[in-house]
Amino acid sequence: MARRRPKGVLEIGLAAAVAAATGRTEHVATADDYPDHIVRRISFKAGGGLGWRISALATPRERVAPWKIVVVTGAPSWAEYWAPALAALPQDREMIVVDRPGYAGSEPIEYVGDIRLQAQALSPLLEAKPGQKVLLVGQSYGAAISVLMAAGAKPRKLAGLVLLSGYFGHSGPTADFLLKTGSRLLKLIPRDLRHAVLEVSNQKPQLDGVRAALTRLRTPVHVVHGDRDDFAPIEIAEALVAETRARRPIRFERVPGADHFLNDGPVDVLLAALEACLPKPRFRLAWPQLPALQWPWARPAQAASPSAELA
């Protein structure tokens, strides 16, 4: 049974402080909750020639799964909060959830404010094995980064983009309070929380490029948002869908009763929402099988029966 990970503003803040004080990159060690063949900590080299090592959680599979779900987390970027979803994923799906640059066990130690650099760094996540398709999920602050990643991806491999509780420059009441408080305590709070405050505070000037990239995407786009989100108001997500002149319609799903952190809610609700974003199998028209035609002259000659010869 997995332990309860800290939730809520005060608990997460305390967990970050304890992790920083003890030098841990995970606030609750995932390896203590799940065996290595269920949820595994991995790392990979960042794209764009940046030279960073990026940390992530992944689901090992003996056989190549037809679908690879890539999750770009929000701010603070802690992949461990997706561990229950990773563990519950069926065997015909695989998932990788990343600690973005500047968070947890990912390099660099410094704050990376340019979302274009983050998109370049995370681009190797979109590599797929032969016969495999990718569903890219951008959560909260990670939604804008995932749009830029999708814009530079090969469309044949990337089969869908999900903006999950996407944050696009407008804070709800809870996020607004945290930003103002965090800005006053910037030099006192742990690194990951400090980076989160800096990222969110400086995101808005970078969004013009994100909106432009969204209009150019040929990949199907899904917006999934809880109707009780007090971090990133659902009205902002609805306006984004209405105002974006995309190449194909953007699908919008309102999740009743859900707040900003869908990955902290029931796992079956989250996985069902992601599963609904996968393309449905193509319907193949099967032609009816016609009866074999037999022509008289094509029938083999029959030997005369003894009774016929006697007659």
Rank of each mutant, 00 (worst) to 15 (best):
P6G: 10
G8I: 05
L14A: 07
L14N: 08
A20V: 13
T22R: 11
R24G: 07
Y34S: 09
V39E: 04
K45H: 13
A46N: 12
I54E: 02
T59L: 10
V64C: 15
P66K: 15
W67G: 05
I69D: 02
V71D: 00
G74P: 06
W78L: 14
Y81R: 07
A88R: 07
E94F: 10
E94M: 09
M95D: 08
P101T: 08
Q120R: 13
A121P: 05
L122H: 06
E127W: 14
K129T: 10
P130I: 12
P130N: 14
V134A: 00
A143Y: 04
A144Y: 03
M149N: 04
A153C: 05
A153I: 04
K157F: 09
K157E: 10
L158C: 01
L163E: 00
G166Y: 03
Y167D: 00
F168Q: 03
G169T: 08
S171Y: 08
S171R: 08
R184F: 11
P190D: 10
L193T: 07
V197W: 01
Q203P: 04
P205D: 11
R211T: 10
T215K: 14
T219M: 04
H222G: 02
V223F: 02
H225M: 04
I236K: 14
E238D: 14
T244L: 02
T244E: 01
R245M: 03
P249K: 00
E253F: 05
L262V: 05
L274S: 00
A276Q: 05
K280I: 12
A286K: 15
A286E: 15
Q289R: 15
A292N: 11
A292D: 09
P296D: 15
A303D: 12
A303F: 07
A304G: 11
A304V: 14
E309V: 15
A311E: 15
